[in-house]
Design a protein around this nucleic acid. Sequence first.
DNA 1: TCTGGGGTCCTAGGACCC
DNA 2: TCTGGGGTCCTAGGACCC
Length: 387
Amino acid sequence: MSRIIFHIDVNSAFLSWNAVKMVSGGEPDIRLVPSVVSGDPADRRSIVTAASMPAKKLGIKTAEPLSSALRKCPDLVVVRGDWEWYKRCSAAFVEICRRYSPVLQRFSIDECFLDMTGRTEKKTAVETATRLKDEVKSQLGFTVNVGIGSNKLLAKMASDFEKPDRVHTLWMEEVPGKMWPLKVRDLLWVGKKTEEKLGARGIDTVGQLAGTDPALLAELVGKKFAQQLHENANGRDDEPVETERAEPKSCSAERTFAHDLSAPEDVDRQLFNVACIVAHRIRREGFRAQCVSVAVKYKDFSVSQKQCTLPHPTDVTAIILNAGRRLLPDIWDGTPIRQVSLGVSHFVRDRSEQLVLFEDSRLEYYRQWDRDYDAAHARPAGDDAAE
DNA sequence: TCTGGGGTCCTAGGACCC
DNA sequence: TCTGGGGTCCTAGGACCC
């Protein structure tokens, strides 16, 4: 049986959400002027997190350095991100979507899929989606795009058509007309590198990709990815709308420094900072991790990374930090670096202690230190999505 | 002009085991 | 002296997403 899937995507999410808050406080609507959400303009490493439509019309793009955006538009309005507010906006947006179908998958903080099969029909789908879109706008003050298709891929592609505040369909029979003329880069999962590889073989459009022999594609991008690309370019996708939030598999924190660092004590201090953050997060979620990894990013953006497996899963900051400290010399040659990161993975959930295996008089001291840290950094356990 | 932060999945090689 | 096939786990790196 044919499915009906909606993909709902908040237009310029972070920027819109900042705007809603500002407008409610009597400030001008930054959506109507060139504006961006970004970091400190004085920090040359700030990048654009979100841009208004007028900013986009000036060629300002997401992830572009703020300094570059400011050159394109010296009058650019720059506002700071507000993660707690974003989470509230996201929750309110998802609540409205959920009224239309309980079969809802949060795809990111500002996107979700709805399986509308049995809740609307093909001929009424646009009407239903328009109602949803208008309800979000009137109740929450920001706009969304709704993409409609017979699977998640088509719905997602459709929501990316003309913005903002629009509903688009991409049914299977519309694929040749609406999707095949697009550049391959517009297809989900085709990034810069894949675009280059395909382009080198003269494959520039989704339609050309759809008509390419999967065996040839496999030589370019590997068998598994080739299969998926070929299916998707032909509009096929049978991924279900997953209502259960998957358990996280890893947790990491990174710090990019205002100036490149080369002094070992400076780098160690930053390593300490990210280890505290990561360990705190997994304690909050009730995980212990068995694998620790550390990475540095050099001036030329090359990354060196190394990981190790711990003898026992842990959530103790000191143990995670020490693992990181042991790894660091293997990946860092002492030349200036712009970023350090630490991550943990291979989680376990059980709370059984293994103090017997782990006779360390300092352990209780470490745990108390962690409890103090957690108390000082207490925040409601977040159901936070990434962006 | 100088490029953030936080994730997921895949690949490929080596170690090790039967 | 040269030799198998399959499986799992670990690790480093790469590509993508928002």
